[in-house]
Design a protein around this nucleic acid. Structure first.
Lengths: 139, 139
DNA sequence: CTTGACCTTGGAGTTAGGTCTAAGCTTTAG
DNA sequence: CTAAAGCTTAGACCTAACTCCAAGGTCAAG
């Protein structure tokens, strides 16, 4: 049984974060000592590791809460549920990547067009492109 | 000279957003009428279009404020400055894309491993991978 | 026995970019 | 003239995931 500081250190988090996870309903420590100190056991640590792994693949805390509730009573849930959550997240991630790739190509074009020298910015092609009324300049 | 509602409609924004941009120092309308109503002229509109184009390539409002201040006194700034801002943003965007691509491949792997059927989630490979103590399962 | 490290709680603050509300003027259409 | 639509302000609220703070209780070392 670890106290909050030890548990946090073991998992590379701050104690504050563990309290936040508890308040969010993600991870309630299995017991408290007489003084009210939180006590985490091995199952709590396994659950926290689940949370951290889910975070590492991009799930939000809300999605992780869903996955945890399925995990807790897995017999009463179907395989379709975790898969749906995963596929929805995958779609979100792909949409975000597409958006950023457009940013990237526009920024690359802006950067390439600019000399970047010590001359006055009066005719800077970056500023001109952002001023241009024709959208061509940006895409 | 447009009042705030007209200006907002012309540019596809809400009046609230224009007030927010003013409070942020991005776009202060060039005048006010006797009643204190904001009045935007053509130069204000051009500046707002600059802001919107800069947003469309991914710049934050803070970065846009920097670009605007360079634009305002371009003779006193060098071409290197807009280019630096652009290149820094480009790096940020590329870093974010890399992070999301890792999420994507992990999520794809999770999704592919799961039958997604109506069977009990007791042996769901998504939950198992997130539980696994070997990190291999996720990367 | 004291000092310092660690723990508790409730609640506020952070970032970014808005969005909304309330109370009260102004303007415009009929 | 009146009612509706539009404008003003200050300030609260929103999301997400923490992060910090204050006031006070607990515990281990010397």
């Amino acid at each position: 049984m670890y106290r909050i500081g030890v548990m946090a250190a073991r998992c590379g988090l701050k104690a504050d974060t563990l309290r936040f996870y508890e308040k969010s309903g993600l991870l309630v420590p299995s017991s408290r000592n007489e003084a009210g100190y939180r006590l985490y056991n091995a199952a709590d640590e396994a659950k926290l590791n689940f949370i951290l792994r889910a975070k590492s693949v991009g799930f939000s805390l809300e999605e992780i809460a869903e996955l945890l509730s399925i995990r807790l009573e897995s017999a009463e849930h179907s395989c379709a549920e975790p898969k749906l959550i995963t596929d929805m997240k995958l779609q979100q991630v792909e949409a975000k990547i597409k958006e950023l790739e457009i940013f990237r190509s526009s920024l690359q074009k802006l950067s390439d067009s600019c000399c970047g020298g010590s001359e006055s910015a009066s005719h800077c092609s970056i500023l001109e492109a952002l001023d241009a009324s024709d959208k061509e300049a940006l895409c």
